[in-house]
Each structure stands twice: as structure tokens, then as C-alpha cells.
């Protein structure tokens, strides 16, 4: 019966990010945060495997103290317990740091057979934390997986590769990063939400880990990308259609 760690990240909702008018700077002043979209699939897969094979599922997240807000949501999606590794300095971690922090936290106190990460995080989408974490823990890993089966002490997974599918057998303990099409995350109900409030949350601080985690990358700048468009809207109906045909003619795609 596998002991599973599901990893989720609390990220800015990119829809709330604004471009500071007249500049190419981004303003994150009024952004909301949420659980990274694809980590919902990761949490769901943990819950699904538990339903199928038994065992236990815990959640793990690394973030600033404010990321605590993500935990109840995550717990309502399946894990029985959450580990929250936190420090105010954890605000702009790069994947190398995040993985190192997770590795330290896991080695110090979490027993596991399987670790599941999302395909990539909603903000950085670096697709690194999973494989880096596996490397640090010295366990096998499979990435871009859209099917997991557990057979005895092995995970049999289907990995999406450019020219098809590769089916791998990984001895446990192992780490798997999952694609969003592996499952459809459930929508937590009222009872799930209530139950989540009662589940234990273990906080692990930087002091507890007794290590420093230095970055390898320096961010030189972040610029807004923009797309200048005419933004002309028209109604459906013969007028709109006629206008669209004129647009298409002008664009030279019909003659």
C-alpha cells in the first residue's frame, strides 16, 4: 500500500497581472493566488491511487507564510495531511532551490513510496522541480506521465514522448510528474471542505531544515509581453458577417 506525496504550489493567478500603463513592467499589486492549475491533477492522481490501492496520501508545498491559504483547498482535494515548508524568504524561489528544500524536508521527516508532481507550475512552468527532486533523493523518475499503475513494488507508467508513448517500469520509491490529461480533478464538495479544515498541517520552517538554499540563477529583468491588436467587436448577423468578409478580403486570404 503506497505512501504517496503529492506536491502542489501556490501561484499568482496570471489573469490578475497587469502591465503598468505606458511601460513594459508588470504589476503584481493586486494579484490573487491559487493552487497551480496542473497541480490539481497531481492531487487528484494521489487521491485516485489511494482509492485504488489504499495506502496514504499527504500533500507538500513550499512557500511563503501566505501560501498557507492554499492548504485547506489542497486538503479538500484528497490528502490526509499537509506538510507546509515555509519561510518569508521563500518568495521567488527558482526550481533548483524549491527542489532542494523539498528534498531536505522529505528526507528529514516524510516516509514515502511515490512522489507526484505536476507537469509544470503555473507561474514558472520550468518543469524542473520533479526531476531535480528525484535526482536529489536518488530515486528513479518518469516525466510527462498520463497513466499510472502500481504493481507490487513497481509503478508502471505511460510517458508521453514526441513520437508516441514510452511505457516504463520504475521500482518504488520513485517520482512521477503527471500531465493534465491523466485525470479530471474532482470539484471538492462542502463535506470535503469541512473535512479539510480538520486535517493536520505540519509546518516545517527553514530553521528546522538547518540549511541554506542558494539560487543558481539571477533574474536580470522581467518585461511584459504585449500584443497590440485592433480589438474591434461586431455582432453576429449579416452586417457583422459582411464586415468580416471584407476584413478577410483585405487580409488577402480570399480574393
Amino acid at each position: 500500500m503506497p505512501r504517496i506525496i503529492t506536491c502542489f504550489k501556490w501561484v499568482v493567478d496570471q489573469a490578475d497581472i497587469r502591465v503598468v500603463p505606458g511601460t513594459d513592467e508588470l504589476s503584481l499589486d493586486r494579484v490573487g493566488y491559487r493552487i497551480s492549475e496542473y497541480d490539481r491533477n497531481c492531487l487528484e492522481e494521489g487521491a485516485r491511487l489511494k482509492e485504488q490501492y489504499g495506502g496514504e496520501v499527504v500533500g507538500l508545498t513550499v512557500g511563503i507564510p501566505g501560501a498557507k491559504k492554499s492548504i485547506k483547498d489542497a486538503l479538500s482535494r484528497g490528502p490526509e495531511k499537509a506538510y507546509f515548508v515555509t519561510d518569508p524568504s521563500f518568495s521567488n524561489l527558482e526550481p533548483g532551490q524549491t527542489a532542494a528544500i523539498m528534498a531536505a524536508a522529505i528526507s528529514s521527516q516524510i516516509e514515502y513510496d511515490l512522489i507526484i508532481c505536476g507537469e509544470g507550475s503555473g507561474d514558472l512552468y520550468a518543469q524542473q522541480v520533479g526531476p531535480r527532486l528525484a535526482e536529489m533523493l536518488g530515486i528513479p523518475c518518469a516525466v510527462f506521465v498520463n497513466k499510472i499503475e502500481i504493481k507490487e513494488k513497481e509503478a508502471i507508467v505511460e510517458c508521453k514522448v514526441e513520437d508516441g508513448v514510452e511505457v516504463l517500469a520504475l521500482p518504488l520509491p520513485a517520482l512521477i510528474t503527471v500531465l493534465p490529461d491523466i485525470n479530471t480533478p474532482r470539484v471538492p464538495g462542502l463535506k470535503d471542505t469541512l473535512a479539510a479544515g480538520k486535517k493536520p498541517v505540519e509546518e516545517i520552517t527553514l530553521q528546522d531544515l538547518n540549511k541554506s538554499f542558494d539560487p543558481y540563477l539571477e533574474t536580470l529583468n522581467v518585461r511584459a509581453t504585449s500584443m497590440e491588436r485592433t480589438c474591434e467587436k461586431m455582432d453576429a448577423g449579416s452586417e457583422g458577417i459582411a464586415k468580416m468578409v471584407a476584413v478577410l478580403t483585405k487580409a488577402g486570404v480570399i480574393s
Binding site: V12, L217, T219
Partner: peptide, 13 residues
């Protein structure tokens, strides 16, 4: 980054 809202320039130390 941020799904494509921004472009980040990084250098490795």
C-alpha cells in the same frame, strides 16, 4: 513566465 504574460531574462551564476 506567468503563462506568457512576461518574459524573464536570467543569467546563471
Amino acid at each position: 513566465i506567468y503563462g506568457g504574460v512576461g518574459v524573464q531574462t536570467v543569467a546563471s551564476t
